[in-house]
């Protein structure tokens, strides 16, 4: 894609208001396009067509330490960032996290990581969310050990004692079958289950997150659950000769809770772990 064509596209979509010239900005856009595999003209054109060019222009001017650009960034986005952090943390901690992200943008040049593939506001929201969730995780690690006695991942230890060794073996079997069945699902189906059951998104929120209608999400969710149940059933019959239902009945379910977060999330499951059955 010739520089002149890139410059023309930019001129249509960007308000040139800082010292970064249209040619300099076009060079930056082309460099980003090439970095993302857009070496040929059509793919470069496609890449540029997807970018939030005006936001990228603002970010580029900021990374060149233009005072007016920083002023615009601050007045347009910093209050939003502090407010957004409050979705995850109480006010004092939220402000600290947001201010730390702002300092990162400025002092450590983190704004260079913004490549215009989303709106700048969404990118800033993503960075704040990520930092706030990490901070929350760190805060939860600081909770005194004696404040949550006998509860591991929400499983009450007193209830764990109720599971007999034979049932424990069946529970482990079921868990392994669940993991194997879930692993066999396409990633998109697995993600759908995770966002709904693990993260607790509503159908409307799933619809927004996955860019499909609520009805399509609902149908797909139902189909995925059926696929998962069928796969567990097949595995159960193949491995134990019994149905998954019979295996569950043998467990006196009503007490074990299969930990979907671990099972679907692919985290390691403690081998000696017992699960509350619901």
């Amino acid at each position: 894609m010739p520089t002149a064509e890139a410059a023309a596209t930019i001129a249509r979509n960007v308000r040139i208001r800082f010292e970064v010239s249209i040619e300099e900005f076009a060079a930056r856009v082309r460099e980003l396009g090439r970095a993302h595999g857009g070496a040929s003209n059509p793919s470069l054109r496609d890449h540029i067509g997807r970018l939030s060019l005006d936001d990228l222009y603002l970010a580029t001017a900021c990374t060149r330490s233009e005072e007016r650009a920083w002023h615009e960034l601050a007045t347009t986005h910093f209050d939003f960032m502090r407010e957004f952090a409050r979705r995850f943390l109480p006010p004092p901690a939220a402000r600290d996290v947001a201010d730390e992200v702002i300092a990162d943008l400025w002092e450590r040049g983190r704004l260079r990581q913004y490549e215009g593939r989303s709106l700048l506001r969404t990118w800033l929201g993503t960075v704040v969310a990520h930092a706030a969730l990490n901070s929350r995780k760190a805060m939860s690690r600081l909770v005194p050990l004696d404040s949550e006695p006998a509860r591991t991942h929400g499983v009450d230890a007193t209830q764990l004692e109720c599971i007999e060794p034979a049932n424990e073996q069946a529970a482990i079997l079921l868990r392994e079958m669940f993991t194997e069945a879930a692993r066999g699902l396409p990633p998109e189906s697995r993600l759908l289950l995770q966002l709904y059951y693990e993260q607790g998104l509503t159908l409307d929120q799933l619809s927004v997150t996955l860019h499909a209608s609520s009805a399509a999400v609902s149908r797909r969710l139902k189909r995925t659950r059926e696929e998962l149940r069928a796969a567990i059933e097949t595995l159960s019959r193949r491995q134990t000769g019994a149905s998954a239902e019979a295996l569950r009945d043998g467990l006196d379910l009503g007490r074990i809770e299969l930990d979907l977060r671990k099972l679907l999330g692919g985290e390691s499951v403690p081998t000696g772990g017992r699960y509350e059955v619901v």
């Binding site: 969404t122 993503t126 990520h130 993600l191 966002l195 997150t209 999330g265 692919g266």
Partner: peptide, 23 residues
């Protein structure tokens, strides 16, 4: 689907876009 950190972040972005906090 493999990374719980990104999944949590994505879930929060979805909520924020759904309630209008993000465009």
């Amino acid at each position: 689907a493999e990374c719980v950190e990104c999944r949590r972040t994505l879930a929060h972005l979805g909520r924020a876009i759904a309630d209008g906090s993000l465009p």
